[in-house]
Amino acid sequence: MGEKILMKGSEAIAEAAVRAGCKLFFGYPITPQNEVPEYMSKRLFEVGGQFVQAESEVAASNMCYGAAAVGHRVMTSSSSPGVTLKQEGLSYCAGSELPVVVVNVMRGGPGLGGIQPAQSDYFQATRPGHGDFRYIVIAPATIQEAVDLMMDAFDLADRYRNPVMVLADGLIGQMMEPVVFREDPPKEYDKSWACTGCAGREKNIVNSLYLDPKDLEDHNFHLFRKYDEVEKNEIRVEEYLMEDAEVALAAYGTTARICKTAIGLLRAQGFKVGLVRPITLWPFPYRTFRKVADRVRFVLDVEMSMGQMIQDVRLGVVERCPVHFYGRVGGMVPAPVEIVQQVQRLLAE
């Protein structure tokens, strides 16, 4: 392992990408993730890569499509309204089976919303753009985890030839924490499908157009066989103090960290509370919630949104226990004491 260094989240995410062998970044400025393109605009030229400040998020995602189509590791980053624009290129990446990593440092909405941390893109991440497809969505709760997941993201993208979204919030992007970068060299993947010039072989075509309905149906079936594999192999979830828990909190990202603090306060008062923290938001750990639901009095889902992940939590719980919700939005971050009060109130009911 390398040495421990103190880094800002956005810059650590960018550095992790470079160390994962990504030498191409295409992006457009938007708060609160500007440190990612700023870092890349210097760093990538040092490692023989390329950085382009695109004319728009739409163009940036299509530049990623082009770079991925020739078989190179490539990424973009943005924040909520910008990610909406990137959905175009990313749907084409999914349809054409191109590996791309996109970082979404979420801010509040709808519309222009605000620039403070939020988790209101859960739908946009897990129910993405047009057509039947999925992103693999991973949600870090610490800068160290962001670094590790960022490096994993490129492997997941290459392995499944699919876009991977690293879903963070403004807190992950902006705060500083010590990180250690893994030093394992980037893995090699077969990219014989890439458009690298047809010397010594038939031409390759990167395409998402299937005009014959039967062909398009087969293509969708093919994609979903692949997604079945992702669901089988890639679910990641943390169960925190769940062994004896009578109440389960459900949260991801920054909110999960706040929940852990709240759990400490609650346990000090004798309340047996634990946390289920999905790390992959798609594929979602439905089975963990199903298992947990039989053991707890209720689940309290906590988000920095009006309640988005709660839909998946309910799908996992399947009415085996009540599922309650507590959310703050618009850049308002829930304080541990608010969560403590919610749990106490629900237990008293």
Binding site: Q50, N62, Y65, A69, Y92, N204, L209
Partner: peptide, 28 residues
């Protein structure tokens, strides 16, 4: 119709896709 490697772009984005191609592989 062209017998070389081909990429199908989304509407209007071909120059952006081409930018991605050439930034990754300037020799192409």
């Amino acid at each position: 119709y062209f017998d070389c490697d081909m990429i199908e772009a989304s509407h209007g984005r071909a120059p952006a896709v081409a930018t991605g191609v050439k930034r990754a592989r300037p020799d192409l």
